[in-house]
């Protein structure tokens, strides 16, 4: 039964490599959730969970990170998506690539509804 169990390792590595090779294109610059109320609500929840600790619960900024209200209104959705995904590691903004693209777009949808103050 346990004669050649190690053979499973190359099989799994091969499978993942094929999936990896077939995946690929960069996400579109268009927000697939544009103007979606449920995406905005989901984005608000994600913001409270991942971003509010630094940017403040209302995105007005804290001593750890600046206000987002001016920046997010003027930025193109694709630029915002890329910025959240990559972060700015030198300045302390973490990369949020651990979140799936769909959740990043939900965040963008919420952020772009914020009014400047």
């Amino acid at each position: 039964m346990r004669r050649h169990p190690i053979q499973i390792i190359p099989t799994i590595v091969l499978f993942v490599t094929v999936v990896y090779a077939k995946s690929g294109a960069e996400p579109s610059a268009e927000n697939p959730f544009q103007n979606s109320d449920s995406a905005r609500a989901a984005g608000q929840k994600l913001f409270a969970r991942h971003c509010a600790e630094c940017h403040g619960p209302a995105a007005d900024g804290t001593e750890r990170a600046p206000s987002l209200r001016e920046f997010v209104r003027s930025a193109a959705p694709g630029v915002l998506h890329t910025f959240i995904k990559n972060g700015n590691l030198r300045s302390g903004m973490p990369s949020w690539s651990r979140l799936p693209d769909a959740q990043l777009w939900q965040l963008v949808t919420y952020l772009q509804t914020l009014e400047p103050r």
């Binding site: 799994i12 995406a39 609500a41 989901a42 929840k45 769909a102 959740q103």
Partner: peptide, 28 residues
């Protein structure tokens, strides 16, 4: 060491929830 994983849901649900699929991450 080699691992792969994925959240059980890619998009977040609109409601606050503990048992939503996006809160679970499974892999090997």
């Amino acid at each position: 060491a080699f691992g792969f994983s994925r959240p059980l849901a890619l998009a977040a649900s609109a409601d606050a929830c503990t048992f939503c699929r996006e809160n679970f991450n499974a892999g090997l």
